[in-house]
Amino acid sequence: MSEAELENEEVGLLVEQEACNRWHLDHDANNGDDPRHYDATATTDTPVTGIVAGALVEVKGCAEWISDGSARRRGRWWFSKSNHDALLDEGGYYALGVYDSDEVEVHRVVLINARAVDGILADRWSTCGKQHHSKESAQLPWPEVLHSGLDVGVSD
Rank of each mutant, 00 (worst) to 15 (best):
A4S: 13
A4T: 02
A4W: 14
E5C: 12
E5H: 10
L6H: 09
N8D: 13
E10D: 09
G12F: 14
G12T: 07
L14R: 04
V15T: 02
Q17M: 11
C20Q: 03
W23Q: 00
W23G: 00
W23C: 00
D26G: 10
D26F: 15
D26P: 07
N30K: 03
N31D: 06
D33H: 04
D33I: 03
P35E: 09
T44S: 08
D45S: 13
T46W: 02
T46G: 01
T49F: 11
I51L: 06
I51Y: 02
A53Q: 08
A53W: 13
E58T: 01
V59P: 00
E64R: 10
E64L: 13
I66V: 15
D68L: 08
G69M: 04
R72A: 02
R73H: 15
R74Y: 15
W78Q: 11
F79G: 03
S80V: 01
K81R: 10
S82N: 03
D89P: 09
E90F: 11
G91Q: 06
Y93F: 15
Y99T: 06
Y99E: 02
D100P: 03
D100N: 10
S101D: 11
V104H: 05
H107M: 12
V109I: 08
V109Y: 06
V110P: 03
L111I: 03
N113D: 10
R115N: 08
R115S: 07
A116Y: 05
V117M: 04
V117N: 00
G119H: 12
L121W: 00
A122G: 00
D123R: 05
S126W: 13
T127P: 12
G129F: 14
K130G: 04
Q131S: 07
S137M: 11
S137I: 04
W142Y: 14
W142L: 07
W142A: 06
V145D: 08
L146A: 09
H147S: 11
H147E: 14
S148A: 11
G149H: 10
G149D: 04
G153Y: 00
S155Y: 09
S155V: 08
